[in-house]
Design a protein around this nucleic acid. Structure first.
Length: 858
RNA sequence: GCCUGGGUGGCGGAAUAGGUAGACGCAAGGGACUUAAAAUCCCUUGAGGCAUGUCCUCGUGCGGGUUCGAUUCCCGCCCCAGGCACCA
């Protein structure tokens, strides 16, 4: 009988579905295990990255289930987003239609992979029954001041025709459009006050032992907490005061100028009527045209303009000039900085350029510094000089003393600053959840009353051919009445950032049909937190940070009991493949290459480095084609076998072939020996075994032990699979050897075969179900327990001991397992090879490691 | 510049608590079966050396160190990937 993956896989998928084997409900008797993979954006087809991600998850889900856990393993759709709008314009269709068609297609692809999802819990974030609860939470946030609106400078992407959050800007470019430079616009936006939770989110970075260190490091850096002080600089000839944030209050006596960020609102009033007014205003205008990333990048030149005004250094009481400078960030600290050119490199360069005075206030321990000869700022530790009462103090100590001094004089105060900014959630897009707010000329900004939720996104409107949201042009949507005064009013036409939906979808999976609130507390409390979350590293900041924030918001609203959404996080590596490039036709798909030549022109192909699979590089492999050719099991197996999950996976067509060969070997092992094993029971450990039969029995149990540890402790499926391969090799060796083939032998062989099938079943469930059934079992493997190993089976009577002389391996001997150190040492010294290396020399020392080695030092 | 990872055969990778480096797989070479091919099975395969062996020497990015013994621990460096970056 030939291994026919397609037929058997479809058969078992149908049976799993028919018997509802993946459905799960709360069961207080069982230990729960919530396993979650990051849900996909319904782009149309699944790609190899999805396949890898979801295969890893499915193995864990199936394994935990066999270990008796009550496993929640849901799947859904991150269904709002810009690609739907773009595709709709391109195909003259509608985002909703495009999205739901894609969902249907991808769902059938996922089913074809045999993933054990409880599809009853499926959700799509574009469903009003989902986003209505998000709107409700928005209203609560608004009430508590956690959502607010402000006019501010925002990052704008022309390609998206919308605002981006700070997290969505990468190197000054849009995260979705690497070719699109982000520009700065001043506009009204809605914000979530994530900064209120900055401290807690940061603190809990130390309480997430199940997260990869690098993700936590990235988050800590992103939050960017620093300790410092606000120092108040009075403006000369005015009542105004300029607040400056610094972490280096120890250098206050060296501050010889002050700089504003160009966006700073105080600037305009300061320069009003000054001779420099025109110059300053034109500088501001010029600077703000350039995005803050560009203008603050390493390569851009530090520039500034004198405002004509002075302020007073509160420590020295001297008047110092006020500048506006391109390198000062408006949204960090107070948007103004004090300039200490002697001890800050940026300030040094700026002062040199504009000939501002320098004053050394920290003296290096080993030399003197003079202002005239300095070539760069001195940023190391040292002793304070020119600092009034603080002279002679170490600068690290002066940080505290000067902070005290400032506070006592009312010239400033200690503070903590974060790099993290509030989350801008307004998007000027159509395909998103409407922000439930109404603007009334008389009553101002009015929340949509709870009873009027959801604010449904209208589906019966046409996309605008040039992109941009149609909502502001759709009176039937935006025209409404004010809930307070009943007068004419206008709806908010911005929608929410799609990261809002993905910040709580995992909570909603616990009760996807609940219609009396966002969450059914009983169910959410049973399942949350997610025990294991699996997804790509690219979400290390965006999605994971937002989710940690939103979880706390829901907790504080009484919707959730947990502090953290994800107890353990596994970030899987990318799927990579080498690129193929034709000198004339550019990147080529694999099918456009034959025998190392371009099928279009016959040119030699240039094989490039292995990089992440992407359509633009055309180095992609379509999972569907592979499934057609080899079956889902082979694809699953290769994804797991090629490398451990957190590392990048190097795609290899031959590797896939190898996985397929192995499954065929397993298939033949069972089918070709079926008659012999069917009429014996699995060896139960009662009869004495000897020789190779004993060895085979031991190998079965060693394999159980190894595979269990590999999956349980570290998700190293590649070594788990290797171990099963070794077991299969050993059975085949026994079968082709001269060992006994009596009933007892077949019982031990049957044990090895069943162990193989059981251990492989989370990885390649279809073929295993089929083989399991052939072996005479009626129940699905989904309901069978994971095998246990027996200590007795692992016992050996002889052990291999390596003999070293001076740390070099010279011989190997077998000794009875019962031997003590002395007996092992005595046996080692008897070795002829050891003797020949020791001959004539004085033995200085003998190290004996039981069961491992003897090292003789001469 | 700072912070994370990582560097092991021709390739993907193993070595989980300092104890036989290279498991398992791929590729390559040789052989068996076959009229032939595919499939399958068996053998060889880190480098070098010669005395061809249960042989010797070298070998886990580089240079030191600790240790009887280091891919593993420590110090200094190089390279690669990712993140942050004029954050005051």
């Amino acid at each position: 009988m030939k291994y026919n993956p397609k037929e058997l896989e479809l058969k078992w998928q149908a049976r799993w579905e028919k018997e509802g084997l993946f459905k799960v409900t709360e069961d207080p008797e069982k230990e729960k295990y919530y396993l979650l993979e990051m849900f996909p954006y319904p782009s149309g087809k699944i790609h190899m990255g999805h396949v890898r991600n979801y295969t890893i998850g499915d193995v864990v889900a199936r394994y935990k289930r066999m270990r008796g856990k009550n496993v929640l393993h849901p799947m859904g759709w991150d269904a709002f987003g810009l690609p739907a709008e773009n595709a709709a314009i391109e195909n003259n269709s509608h985002p909703a239609k495009w999205t739901y068609e894609n969902i249907e297609n991808m769902k059938s692809q996922l089913k074809r992979m045999g993933f054990s999802y409880d599809w009853d819990r499926e959700l799509a974030t574009c469903d009003p029954e989902y986003y209505r609860w998000e709107q409700l939470i928005f209203l609560k946030m608004l009430e508590k001041g956690l959502a607010y609106k402000k006019r501010t400078f925002v990052n704008w992407c022309d390609a998206c025709q919308t605002v981006l959050a700070k997290e969505q800007v990468e190197n000054g470019r849009c995260w979705r459009h690497p070719e699109q430079e982000v520009t700065i616009k001043e506009m009204d936006s809605w914000f979530f006050k994530i900064t209120s939770y900055a401290e807690e989110i940061l603190e809990y970075c130390d309480k997430l032992p199940g997260w990869p260190e690098r993700v936590l490091t990235m988050q800590r850096n992103w939050i960017g907490k620093s300790h410092g002080a606000i120092i108040r600089f009075p403006v000369a000839g005015s009542e105004s005061v300029i607040d400056v944030y610094t972490t280096r209050q120890d250098t206050i006596f060296g501050a010889t100028f002050l700089c504003f960020a160009p966006e700073h609102p105080m600037l305009r009033e300061l320069v009003a009527g000054e001779p420099q007014e025109k110059e300053v205003l034109s500088f501001i205008e010029r600077t703000l045209k350039v995005d803050s990333f560009i203008r603050t990048a390493d390569f851009s030149v530090k520039e500034g303009v004198f405002t004509g005004r002075y302020c007073i250094n509160p420590a020295t009481e001297e008047e110092i000039p006020i500048y506006v400078a391109n390198f000062v960030l408006f949204d960090y600290g107070t948007g103004a900085v004090m300039g200490v050119p002697t001890h800050d490199q940026r300030d040094f360069e700026f002062a040199k350029k504009y000939e501002l005075p320098l004053r050394v206030v920290i003296k290096p321990p080993d030399r003197d510094l003079t202002e005239e000869t300095m070539e760069e700022a001195y940023v190391e530790e040292g002793i304070l000089v020119n600092s009034g009462p603080f002279n002679g103090m170490r600068n690290v100590d002066a940080l505290e003393s000067i902070a005290d001094y400032l506070e006592s004089k009312g010239m400033g105060y200690r503070t903590v600053n974060y790099r993290l900014r509030d989350w801008n959630i307004s998007r000027q897009r159509y395909w998103g959840a409407p922000i439930p707010v109404i603007y009334c000329d008389r009553c101002g900004t009015v929340p949509v009353p709870e009873k009027d939720l959801p604010v449904v996104l209208p589906l019966d409107l046409e996309m605008r051919p040039n992109g941009g949201s149609p909502l502001p042009f759709e009176p039937s949507f935006f025209e409404t009445t004010c809930p307070v005064c009943n007068g004419k009013a206008r709806r908010e036409t911005d929608t929410m950032d799609t990261f809002v939906e993905s910040s709580w979808y995992f909570d909603r999976y616990t009760c996807p049909d609940y219609d009396r609130g966002p969450l059914d507390h009983e169910k959410a409390d049973y399942w949350m937190p997610v025990d294991q979350y699996i997804g790509g590293i690219e979400h290390a900041i965006l999605h994971l940070l937002y989710s940690r924030f939103y979880t706390r918001v829901l907790r504080d609203f009484g919707e959730l009991k947990v502090d953290e959404p994800f107890a353990n996080l596994l970030t899987q590596g990318m799927v990579c493949k080498e690129t193929q490039e034709c000198p004339r036709h550019g990147y080529l798909y694999p099918h456009e290459v034959r025998d190392g030549k371009c099928v279009h022109c016959g040119s030699e192909i240039i094989v490039g480095n292995s990089v992440k699979m992407s359509k633009s590089k055309k180095n992609v492999v379509d999972p569907e084609e592979l499934i057609d050719r080899y079956g889902a099991d082979t694809v699953r197996m290769f994804c797991l076998f090629a490398s451990p999950p957190e590392r990048d996976l190097e795609w290899s067509d031959q590797g896939v072939e190898g996985s397929f060969r192995f499954l065929n070997r397993v298939w033949r092992l069972v089918t070709e020996n079926l008659e012999n094993v069917l009429h014996v029971p699995v060896y139960g450990g009662k009869e004495e075994l000897s020789g190779n039969l004993r060895k085979l029995h031991r190998k079965s149990h060693q394999t159980i032990k190894k595979v269990t540890a590999d999956i349980e402790d570290r998700f190293h499926f590649n070594t788990a699979i290797s171990a099963v391969m070794e077991l299969v090799n050993e059975v085949n060796q026994y079968l082709s050897g001269s060992g006994e083939k009596d009933n007892l032998a077949w019982a031990v062989i049957r044990e090895a075969i069943e162990v193989t099938v059981l251990l492989l079943s989370p990885v390649v469930p279809h073929i295993c179900e089929e083989l399991w059934q052939m072996l005479g079992h009626r129940e699905s493997l989904l309901t069978v327990s994971w095998p246990e190993y027996s200590e007795k089976a692992l016992e050996v009577d002889k052990r291999l001991v390596v003999l070293q002389v001076n740390g070099k391996v010279r011989d190997r001997i077998e000794v009875p397992a019962s031997f003590g150190r002395d007996e092992i040492q005595a046996e080692a010294l008897k070795s002829k090879r050891v003797q020949s290396f020791v001959a004539g020399a004085q033995i200085k020392k003998v190290i004996v490691v039981r069961d491992k080695l003897v090292n003789i030092v001469v």
